[in-house]
């Protein structure tokens, strides 16, 4: 299988869907002529032209809302937010319009829109540019949210998101764009709501999404090599819909869990997972569920300190050793 970058995997997914469905339109700031601020849309404007790949002014509320409206009439807009942090300018359009219109219309309307872009800390761009709003989106019934951790998942989830008939938020990661993974040449889709076991194990479950999966995998290697602990790494991939079965199956097998989450702890994704585990399989637990989240403060700029603000393999190992 060819090794391709996370960025290229997304790019391929977009290109394939543009070709497959004439209603797919890519839109956002600098996505066309500039090739994308992070080059995810590189070459698409040249290949597919002005109608399919559209540069917008810096008017997130306007163009995201426009995408929601167009999707009601059957367009399949794939809207890029240069950073998910800028979604807050368009919050009303995402939460109130994309998120609620189906319900309020008694099911008469649906919004097949995709809103995508990077949502991560770790690049020293400061508090305004480092938000991870997957928990906010997941807190809104009506919206879906996925956080791919690898190129393979990014491509498969993006293609499914575009074909999905509900609004799907795809949260990518600038630190992963340049990383490579094996991706098959033939077409494939990954359903929303299906987790993936990234490493099978027996002693403890490390449950994560997005780049935290990579952190968990590193921790698992060290746990195996240095502590004789065989950790299973569960990649949620999709936050809402959530693969509860996979979580419960893994923890029922290992009886211990550390949740690794680049979200902030309060009402973060891991808080929901912890609640699910104790509600449904309390008796399976041999120890309290542990969490490793981003340290609970706005994202600090200082490069030296931001390194420790996000979950690290060391912090995961520390928590794992506490309960193993």
């Amino acid at each position: 299988m060819p090794l391709i970058t996370y960025r290229k995997a997304l790019n391929d997914a977009l290109a394939e869907e543009i070709i497959r469905d004439e209603n797919v339109v890519i839109m956002g700031e600098e996505v066309a002529q500039y090739n994308g601020a992070y080059k995810v849309t590189e070459g698409l404007w040249e290949r597919f032209g002005d109608k399919r790949v559209v540069d917008t002014p810096i008017s997130e509320a306007g163009f995201i809302g426009m995408g929601v409206g167009a999707s009601m009439l059957g367009i399949r807009p794939v809207m890029e937010l240069m950073f998910w942090s800028f979604a807050y300018v368009a919050w009303d359009q995402i939460i109130n319009n994309a998120g609620q219109v189906r319900y309020m219309s008694g099911g008469l309307i649906n919004c097949p829109i995709v809103i995508r872009g990077p949502a991560n800390g770790g690049t020293n761009v400061g508090a305004t540019h480092s938000h991870t709003p997957e928990n906010f989106i997941a807190n809104t019934p009506g919206l879906k949210v996925v956080c791919p951790a690898t190129a393979y998942d990014a491509k498969g989830l993006m293609k499914t998101a575009i074909r999905d008939n509900d609004p799907v938020c795809v949260m990518e990661n600038t630190l992963l764009y340049g990383e490579s993974w094996e991706v098959p040449e033939e077409e494939y889709l990954i359903p929303l709501g299906v987790a993936d076991i990234k490493r099978a194990g027996t002693d403890i479950s490390l449950i994560a999404h997005g780049r935290a999966v990579i952190t968990a995998l590193k921790a698992a290697e060290i746990l195996a090599a240095e502590h004789g602990i065989n950790a299973e790494v569960v990649d949620l991939r999709s936050i809402r819909p959530l693969d509860e079965e996979a979580i419960l199956r893994s923890v029922s097998k290992t009886h211990r869990a550390v949740l690794v989450d680049e979200n902030k702890p309060f009402c973060g994704v891991s808080a929901q997972i912890a609640a699910t585990i104790q509600e449904q399989i309390f008796d399976e637990l041999d120890a309290p569920v542990q969490r490793v989240c981003s340290l609970d403060a706005p994202a600090i700029y200082s490069p030296e300190l931001e390194k420790i603000q996000l979950p690290t393999p060391d912090r995961v190992i520390e928590k794992a050793l506490l309960i193993c």
């Binding site: 400061g126 508090a127 540019h129 600090i300 700029y301 200082s302």
Partner: peptide, 8 residues
Amino acid sequence: RGKGGSMH
């Protein structure tokens, strides 16, 4: 105090 960076 190193918290904002260039933009802040």
